[in-house]
Amino acid sequence: MLNLILKDILIQKNILIIYIATIILYLMVNVPSVYIVFIYSIVFVLSAFSNDEKDNANILLNSLPYTRKEIVSSKYIGALIFTGLFMFLTYLFDFLLNGNQVAVLWKEVLLIMGLVMIVISFILPISYKFKTKYLTIAIMGLFGVYMVIINYFVPNLNKQIRTVVQNFMTVQELQLYLIVSLLIVVLYIGSWMLSVRIYKRKAF
């Protein structure tokens, strides 16, 4: 399974240079690290998934000595590894560029991991059931709805989202973090099992 995760990294090794360059650019204009890690982690996972859809790659994957469960599991485990990688790079560059003596807060780590896991929990089953092109259409539609909302109904939505994030970072109840973390883990595992079931039934 480790080789499947390494495959996703190696296929995108040239794009990684672009990722790193743009991360540095965003840090220079003070884009919050949480947003950077979240966006790049999701983009990386989606890119890895879309590569498997090209040129009958799934037929090749299924001819290799891996079970379909292992193929799907590599995406879910890889998503967490990629998030950790982008988190490390982002905070490292933030320290080198801005001189921020940042000890990464465990709350921030939980927030990033939690957001990525929630999004991946919905994205991967949809991608396995259909194709990423349909997911792209759905994302574009949601973005259109989002733009309508912030322009006509809730102009300060972005500010409200930032406030929610800030409130999360200031909560002191450890029990609340444990409950939310547990719910996210259950959602992630449930999505994982659903994706395995969907992929096992697909014919290539």
Score class of each variant (00 low, 15 high):
G84K: 05
V186D: 10
V196H: 07
K202E: 07
N14E: 10
L16F: 15
S41P: 02
Y177K: 06
L182C: 08
W106V: 02
I15D: 05
F38K: 02
I126Y: 10
S73A: 15
I150Y: 02
E53L: 13
S74P: 13
Y35N: 05
N158K: 07
R201L: 10
V171D: 06
T136F: 13
L85G: 02
N62H: 06
V164W: 12
F122V: 12
P32L: 02
E173L: 08
L25Q: 01
D55C: 11
K200H: 14
G114N: 02
L16I: 11
F95W: 10
N51S: 09
N14R: 12
L178D: 01
S47M: 13
L85T: 01
V116C: 07
G141T: 10
V37D: 05
G78H: 11
T83W: 04
F86L: 11
I42R: 02
M147K: 09
E70G: 04
S195H: 01
Y128R: 06
F49H: 12
F93Q: 00
R68E: 14
N30P: 00
K129L: 15
S63Y: 04
I18L: 15
K129I: 06
K7E: 04
F49V: 01
L64E: 03
S74C: 06
T90W: 00
I17H: 12
G84M: 08
V119F: 14
D55H: 12
D52K: 10
G190T: 06
V31D: 08
I9C: 14
S41Y: 05
I123F: 03
V29K: 05
V43H: 02
N56K: 12
W192D: 05
E173I: 03
I24L: 13
I149L: 01
I189A: 02
G78S: 10
L111Q: 03
G84L: 11
V145N: 00
T163M: 13
R197Y: 04
L135I: 11
T22D: 04
Y19A: 12
M87N: 06
A57K: 08
K133P: 03
K54G: 03
S191E: 05
L4M: 08
L89V: 14
V43L: 12
S74A: 15
I18N: 08
I20T: 14
L61Q: 13
T67D: 04
S121Q: 01
F93S: 10
L176T: 08
S63V: 00
V29T: 01
Q172Y: 06
I161L: 15
I18Y: 13
L61E: 11
E108S: 10
I184P: 09
V102N: 09
F153Q: 12
L124M: 02
M28T: 07
M28F: 07
V171T: 08
M117Y: 06
I149M: 05
G190L: 00
N167D: 10
F95I: 00
L157E: 08
V104N: 07
V196Q: 12
N156M: 09
I11V: 15
V119K: 07
F143D: 02
I149W: 01
V34I: 14
N156Y: 11
N56L: 00
T170V: 06
A103T: 14
S33G: 14
Y152H: 01
L142N: 03
V72Y: 06
L27W: 09
T132L: 11
Q101A: 10
F95G: 05
